[in-house]
Design a protein around this nucleic acid. Structure first.
Length: 476
DNA sequence: AGAAGTCTCGC
DNA sequence: CAAGCGAGACTTCTT
C-alpha cells in the first residue's frame, strides 16, 4: 500500500489513527507504521516479520535499547506522521520556468562538448564519455579505470583535468550540474505535488538508516541542493503555505564535532567549545601552533577538512586526496592533530577495542550498531567495520538528540496551541511553516528545546541557530 | 523489467 | 586499499 496516495488521493485519512494505535492498540505502534515503510522499501511481498525482526532485534536486546525505543522512537512516530501529513508547499510555476532555463543552458554546454570533441555521443553516459576523453582525445595517459573496466569520469577526475587547462571539461561539468538539477529536482518535484493539498509529502524512514538517522524519500527532501549558485535556486521553490506564514529553519551548530569532543572527553576540544570560538580556527591554531589571530584562510580550511575526516575515520591518504596536498604533509597535519587532541585518538582506539570485544558500538542513549566484521581477518573488510565503529556513535548520538528535540518541540507547540507546523528534518536542521504572529514566541521555543533535548557530558554546550524568510533559501 | 554500476545531491 | 550515512537519475547488462 502506498501511504502517500492513501493519505491524499480522496480517501479519508482514518487509517493514520489506526496506524499510530489510537484505537486500543497499546503495543507495537511503531511496528505498524514501520510495516508500511518496510513494504514501501522492500516491496509488497517482502517477508515483513523477518524484516521487522532485523530492524528491531538490535533495539530490543538490552534495557538500554528499550530506552531508545521508549524515549526516542515511539514518541517520534506521531511527530513524523504529522510532518508527512502536513507537507511543504512548492512554487510550481517557478520550477517550470527554471526548468526551461536549465534545459537551454545544458543544451548549450552539450553542443560545445561535441564541437570540442569533434564527435557526437551520449554525454550522459560515463562510459562513452570516458572513451572520448581518454582514447580519442588522450587527455590523461594514466587515466584510472573502474572495476568494470571503464574509465573513471567522476567530478574529482574532471576537476583535475580542468585544472590542466582542458576547456572541454568545463562544459562537461556544467552539463553534469545542470542535468542533475533538472532531472532530480526541478522536473521531479512538481510531479510529486499532491493535487488536493498543493504540497509535497515526503515519507520518513524511521528504522532504515543503520546509525539511527531518519531517511526521506518520495521525494527525498534531505538532499535539496545548497552548495552552488544554480543549485540554491531550487530552494527558492520551497515556500510557506500562504502570506500569513514564513519559513523558519533552525539548525544545530557543529553538532557532530561537539559530540566527538563530549564523548571523547578531549580536554582541548571541549575547552574550545566552551570558549565559544570558531572550532576550525581553534583547531588550526593548535595544529599549526600559532595564535588564533594568525590563522590564515588556508590553515582554517585544512583544519576543517581534518575535523570532518576524523569523524569518518579518514587517514592520511584520504586527506591528501581531498586537499590536493602531499601525503607527507597530510600525515604531518594528522600527527600534529593527534598530539594536540590526544583524547580523540584515545576515543578511536578505545571504541575499536570495545567493538572487538562486544561486537557492537553504541550511542549516548544506548542505541546499538552491530559490527559483525570488526574481527575479520580481511584488512579491507575490517577497516570498514572500524570506521563504522568510530563514526556510528557520533552520527547516532546526533540522531538521538534531534529526534528527542523534535518530540519536545512538537509537544511544546501543541501545548502553546500554536498553528505553526514542523515540516522537515534534515539531520541537524528542522524546518517550520511559521504563522507570522507566532514567530516571536516560536523561535525561542524551538531553540530552547533543541539545545536542552540532550545534555552532553563534559560541559560541552549545544547551540542551535534559527533563521526566517519567504523561502527555504532565505530561511537557511 | 529488474539489477548492477556510476555519478551527484545533502548532512 | 584509502571518508561515515542516505536517495535517486541515468546507462548498460541480464533475464
Amino acid at each position: 500500500m502506498d501511504l502517500l496516495s492513501e493519505k491524499f488521493l480522496g480517501y479519508e485519512p482514518v487509517h493514520i489513527e489506526e496506524l499510530i494505535g489510537k484505537k486500543g492498540k497499546t503495543q507495537g505502534t511503531m511496528r505498524d507504521v514501520e510495516i508500511e515503510k518496510v513494504k514501501e522499501y522492500a516491496g509488497e511481498d517482502a517477508d515483513i516479520t523477518l524484516q521487522l525482526k532485523n530492524v528491531f532485534t538490535p533495539m530490543l536486546k538490552t534495557k538500554e535499547v528499550e530506552k531508545v525505543f521508549n524515549e526516542v522512537e515511539n514518541p517520534l512516530v506521531q511527530v513524523l506522521v504529522d510532518m508527512e501529513y502536513e507537507g511543504i508547499r512548492i512554487d510550481e510555476e517557478f520550477l517550470k520556468e527554471y526548468s526551461k532555463e536549465l534545459e537551454k543552458d545544458a543544451k548549450k554546454a552539450e553542443e560545445s562538448v561535441y564541437k570540442q570533441a569533434g564527435v557526437r555521443f551520449n554525454l550522459a553516459s560515463p562510459r562513452q564519455l570516458g572513451e572520448v576523453l581518454f582514447e580519442k582525445l588522450k587527455l590523461d595517459p594514466s587515466a584510472r579505470k573502474t572495476k568494470t573496466g571503464q574509465y573513471q569520469t567522476g567530478e574529482d577526475v574532471l576537476l583535475k583535468l580542468a585544472a590542466k587547462g582542458n576547456d572541454i571539461v568545463e562544459n562537461i561539468l556544467i552539463f553534469r550540474e545542470l542535468t542533475k538539477l533538472k532531472s532530480t529536482y526541478v522536473d521531479a518535484l512538481p510531479q510529486l505535488i499532491c493535487k488536493r493539498t498543493g504540497r509535497v509529502h515526503t515519507t520518513y524512514g524511521q528504522a532504515v538508516a543503520v546509525t539511527g538517522r531518519l531517511q526521506s524519500n518520495n521525494p527525498n527532501l534531505q538532499n535539496i541542493p545548497v552548495r552552488t549558485e544554480r543549485g540554491k535556486e531550487v530552494r527558492k521553490a520551497f515556500i510557506p503555505r500562504d502570506n500569513k506564514h514564513i519559513l523558519l529553519s533552525a539548525d544545530y551548530s557543529q553538532i557532530e564535532l561537539r559530540i566527538v569532543a563530549s564523548i571523547s572527553g578531549d580536554k582541548n576540544m571541549c575547552e574550545a567549545f566552551r570558549e565559544g570560538t570558531d572550532i576550525h580556527t581553534a583547531t588550526a591554531a593548535r595544529v599549526y601552533n600559532v595564535d588564533e589571530k594568525a590563522v590564515t584562510k588556508e590553515m582554517r580550511y585544512k583544519a576543517k577538512s581534518v575535523n570532518f575526516g576524523i569523524v569518518y575515520g579518514q587517514g592520511a591518504f584520504g586527506l591528501a586526496d581531498n586537499l590536493g596536498i602531499s601525503r607527507t604533509e597530510a600525515k604531518e597535519i594528522i600527527d600534529n592533530y593527534k598530539k594536540q587532541f590526544p583524547g580523540i585518538q584515545k576515543y578511536m582506539d578505545d571504541t575499536i577495542n570495545f567493538a572487538r570485544e562486544a561486537g557492537y558500538v553504541e550511542t549516548l542513549m544506548g542505541r546499538k550498531r552491530w559490527l559483525r566484521d570488526i574481527n575479520s581477518a580481511n584488512f579491507t573488510v575490517r577497516g570498514f567495520a572500524e570506521r563504522n565503529a568510530i563514526n556510528s556513535p557520533i552520527q547516532g548520538t546526533a540522531a538521538d538528540m534531534i529526534k528527542l528535540a523534535m518530540y519536545k518541540v512538537h509537544t511544546a507547540m501543541k501545548k502553546a496551541k500554536m498553528q505553526s507546523k514542523m515540516l522537515l528534518q534534515v539531520h541537524d536542521e528542522l524546518v517550520f511553516d511559521a504563522l507570522k504572529t507566532e514567530v516571536k514566541e516560536l523561535k525561542p521555543l524551538i531553540i530552547e528545546n533543541m539545545q536542552t533535548a540532550m545534555k552532553l557530558p563534559n560541559k560541552v554546550p549545544v547551540i542551535a541557530d534559527c533563521g526566517e524568510g519567504k523561502n527555504w533559501l532565505e530561511a537557511h
